[in-house]
Amino acid sequence: MSGLTSIVLTCLVFFIIYQIAKASELAAILRGEEKSKAQTNRLMAWLLVAFFFLGLFGIWECHQYLMDKMLPESASEHGVEYDKMFTVTIVVTGVVFFLTQTLLFWFSFRYQSTEKRTSFFYPHNNKLELIWTTIPAIAMAVLVVIGLKNWGKMTSEAPEEAMVVEVVGKQFNWIMRYPGADGTLGKRDFRNINDVDNVLGMDWDDKSNLDDIVLQNGELHLVKGKPVKLIIGSRDVIHDVGLPHFRMKMDAVPGIVTTMWFTPRFTNAEMKEKTGNPDFVYEISCDQMCGKGHYAMRGTVIVHTQEEYDAWLSEQQSYYAINNGAPAAQPEQEIDSVNVITMK
């Protein structure tokens, strides 16, 4: 019912607007076309000026309202460089934005048609055109240099001492694998996968698999100040490991291994303090559309100090042990209780 009323109301509003518009057109003709044209022209020139100043005010208001919702200080070393580069780009584009928009609206107002005005026949000026080809080219060169320097750093080889974690996406959650005591991730093959006791298709003939730890709760445990290299893969469709607080992102593609590395700067506890938000949590968002549950494909990152991490790690059981009833099978509950401790 309310749907019908709103449709009727909308139609009514349309009808009224249309009638007013038609009437104003007729009135314009009655008043004399030339005169009303001149009036409209003045009105539009002023409206554009009003639009410009309202726009500036709106930009200011929007900025005030949203600034404290922005991301906190970057949680990774890469991100610090990233934020600097972002600022430089904002300044460059901001100057161009305000300059060109001001000229656009100013010229529009200043050179509005009047009876006395005649336009200035000015078809070209090679010198001017050369200048404004060169200046953007130089500005671009600067941005490219800064960009490539950072791009090189972010995509460089991970340092030797980096810890290695495998992150595998599936519809619709993340599976993490830690290499265990031997420091090596064992071989895996998608043909071995089953959702009961081998979610990653690990090859049990490869002994280095036996101590690998698999987390299916979407948690990525890292150590503050220690570089981490993520080995990224996918079981089904393309996903993307998005780490907004670390300013990092990398696709998870089935059949292809991708990697990225970074160094966390703050533990969860430190970040809670920094943001003044007791609920703060590093989130992993899937950033590549992967199906109906895409929006709920959420993981979390937990950054520990080295001691906390060691304590956490020592309580983890290898995936093989969990599934093959090896010494004192401790079900996943154990992991959950640890989470509670580290989260709070």
């Binding site: 022209n41 020139a45 000229l103 050179y111 048609s113 005005r117």
Partner: peptide
């Protein structure tokens, strides 16, 4: 590199549009 290069012809177009309306006799 190639992507940011596109900004150059685009910028030229914008400046040329701005100069087109400069000292015009604008009918809104």
């Amino acid at each position: 590199l190639l992507t940011l290069l596109i900004a150059v012809p685009s910028a030229v177009k914008v400046f040329n549009w701005l100069t087109t309306i400069w000292k015009g006799n604008i009918r809104f």
